[in-house]
Design a protein around this nucleic acid. Structure first.
Lengths: 213, 213
DNA sequence: CCTACCGATCGGTAGG
DNA sequence: CCTACCGATCGGTAGG
């Protein structure tokens, strides 16, 4: 009884905190405005999360856990080279498009606490990024991927690109007047086109391509 | 005499504020720590810049002015298609590589005050970004640039990529262990390679290419 | 350029 | 889950 209600209010606090931390930043958000958003008083919030710092940790932990759960589901799915590329980048993009605040939180962590984010990336993402570079090198041996591609640097660039575009891409779009301003879909489509065109040697190979003589 | 000294201390305050705003954010920085960094007291700082908000405006104005001055110098220089591409992206990248805090400040503005940044981009960058898309369309007519390139979306993606990579690229590099971690140069080289490979149809055309029959 | 001081807001605690 | 209260820190002002 009490427990269900307590978990529910905890969830609502964490949800509100996620939104406010993402849009105004950690130091730009006060516990007062979070409590207001939930409809309770600040000391009540502090009963559920002992301190502002603990609330921040809970928000990030949920985000990272969600991300970690998503990765293996994606990488183990697809089969062919092109297939694998499509599935990976679409799932990766989809995760952040589903809620751009995820990308904003990560970008803010990269700016505010770079060392801590690096530790998380190193411990939880390294095995998976190594798998991706392994497949890129396989593609190079098969003659599908250009030799001038630097697999590690390529993966880093795509990660940065996906997160930055979903977080603040709409702001950058203001370099054009509204008549030609690009929709979110157009920007995402161009991102995928660029990632693909700068990886594969041929524009859109069929799945059976195996002979490169 | 007094004026020279006053201008000098103003410069030092602005410099220190630029560094602290970029690394800790506007709301994460107190006037006290800025004054400390300069070696004066907070009320003395407030004599030069009437308020924290005015200091922020001065910091951003300097950055934006510097950027605006740089653009025409670059775009009017180069001649050929490939030349123009190299000169533009190198100068654009160089501006942020020279001081990554510039990229961090812009990224923070995009997160903290998106509407204001959009206004700046719209008023001061639109003419120049239109020139770039004009040249991309010229390249498409000449058969040098692929038809599937969306000129506006491409420009937006490259802008986002350059700023995000120079601001926080080194953090993302932690997805690999230190043995294979990429140097700044490797990441920048890959960024340029990706931008080029996803724009031009042929890998590295010679400069004299003008006949597309 | 300083010291001294201001009200407002911050995160957090006591006690119920 | 609340009211009442805490010290610390915030940006900013007075006055010299």
């Amino acid at each position: 009884m009490t427990k269900n209600h307590s978990e529910e209010i905890r969830r609502r606090i964490q949800e509100e905190a996620t939104r406010q931390f993402a849009t105004r930043g950690f130091s730009g958000t006060s516990l007062e405005t979070i409590a207001d958003g939930v409809g309770i008083r600040r000391p009540s919030l502090l009963y559920h999360f002992g301190s502002k710092e603990r609330l921040r940790e809970a928000v990030l932990e949920e985000l990272f856990q969600h991300w970690k759960d998503e990765i293996p589901r994606v990488l183990t799915a697809a089969t062919g080279e092109q297939d694998r590329f499509d599935a990976t980048i679409e799932a990766f993009l989809g995760f952040f498009l589903e809620d751009p605040n995820r990308a904003r939180l990560i970008l803010r962590e990269a700016l505010d606490r770079p060392e801590e984010l690096q530790k998380f990336l190193q411990h939880h993402l390294t095995p998976w990024s190594k798998i991706i570079t392994h497949y890129i090198r396989l593609g190079q041996r098969l003659g599908l991927v250009g030799d001038r591609v630097n697999p590690e640097a390529y993966v880093i660039q795509v990660i940065v690109q996906v997160i930055a575009t979903t977080a603040v891409g709409y702001v950058a779009a203001a370099v054009f007047e509204s008549e030609v301003r690009q929709s979110r879909e157009a920007k995402v489509a161009e991102l995928v086109r660029m990632a693909r065109a700068s990886l594969f040697l041929r524009p859109s190979p069929s799945k059976e391509v195996e002979d490169n003589g």
